[in-house]
Amino acid sequence: MKPANLLVSRTGQVKIADFGIAEVVTRAGSHRAAYEGTAAYMSPERFDTEPAHDGEEEVRVDPYAADVWGLGLIVLELLMGRYPLLPAGKKPTFPALMWAICFGELPAIPDGAASPALRDFVAACLHKDHRKRATVADLLAHPFVTGRDMAASRCALCQVIEQRCR
């Protein structure tokens, strides 16, 4: 997931578009090459082409873990107004992105810029270890999601869209 693939209607409906590399994996061991997709929104585990092992067992990755990472980055980018993992103005080269995603620290959200629920939601999405990252079910039950007034949120989104359309 990346911001360019989110389409927002004037009524505040959000749709995900461009499933260019999406694939349903049906056989054990089937996987896509790690480097397919947009590097800036890849999750840390996508940069490692070797399957992770815990002792003798291969570590299974939640097939949606990379999407949860991307969602966390999108929310953080919306909050910050720019790509969050590189300093403002830094050129997003592949090595710079890989280092920032795999080894860099997540940016601190300024005090007062977000509610505790939003901070916790973003943190749950952006665990570098995919085994500690929230699942989709976790996020749907998260207070940031369940505590939303959906009508008010949609209205606020429509107001933003209307301002951009003028």
Rank of each mutant, 00 (worst) to 15 (best):
V75A: 14
L85Q: 06
T38M: 09
P143C: 11
E23Y: 04
M42D: 01
T93R: 08
V59T: 14
G37E: 09
F94Y: 10
D18W: 11
S43E: 01
D111V: 06
C158F: 02
L6F: 09
M98R: 15
R60N: 08
E77F: 15
V160E: 10
P92S: 12
T135G: 05
A117G: 02
A134I: 00
R10K: 10
F121H: 00
K132Q: 15
A22G: 13
T26Y: 10
Q13G: 02
L140D: 03
L157S: 00
A124Q: 08
G89I: 08
P143T: 06
M80P: 04
E50F: 11
L139F: 02
A52L: 15
S153R: 14
L97W: 02
K91T: 13
R166A: 06
L7C: 09
A52C: 05
I21D: 02
E162C: 04
T135D: 04
R131T: 13
E162T: 08
P116A: 13
Y83E: 03
M1H: 09
A96T: 08
L78H: 05
F103K: 15
E23P: 00
A156L: 15
A22W: 08
D111L: 11
Q13W: 07
A88K: 11
A117W: 02
C165Q: 11
P51D: 07
E57T: 14
A123V: 02
N5M: 09
A40D: 02
P44F: 09
A124W: 04
G37V: 08
V75D: 01
E23S: 06
L7R: 11
A124M: 14
R166S: 04
P51I: 13
P110T: 12
L106S: 03
T135S: 15
A4P: 01
K132W: 03
A28F: 07
K132E: 13
P51H: 14
E77S: 14
H31E: 08
A52Y: 12
R32C: 08
E77T: 12
T49R: 15
R148Y: 05
P87K: 06
M1W: 05
R27T: 03
R119T: 01
L157T: 02
R60W: 12
Y41G: 00
L85P: 00
F144L: 05
N5W: 06
L86A: 06
D54A: 10
D111W: 04
G29T: 07
C158V: 10
A22P: 01
G12P: 04
C102E: 12
L139R: 01
A151P: 00
A100W: 01
S30I: 07
V8A: 04
S43F: 02
H142S: 04
I109P: 01
F121G: 00
P3A: 05
C158S: 06
E23L: 06
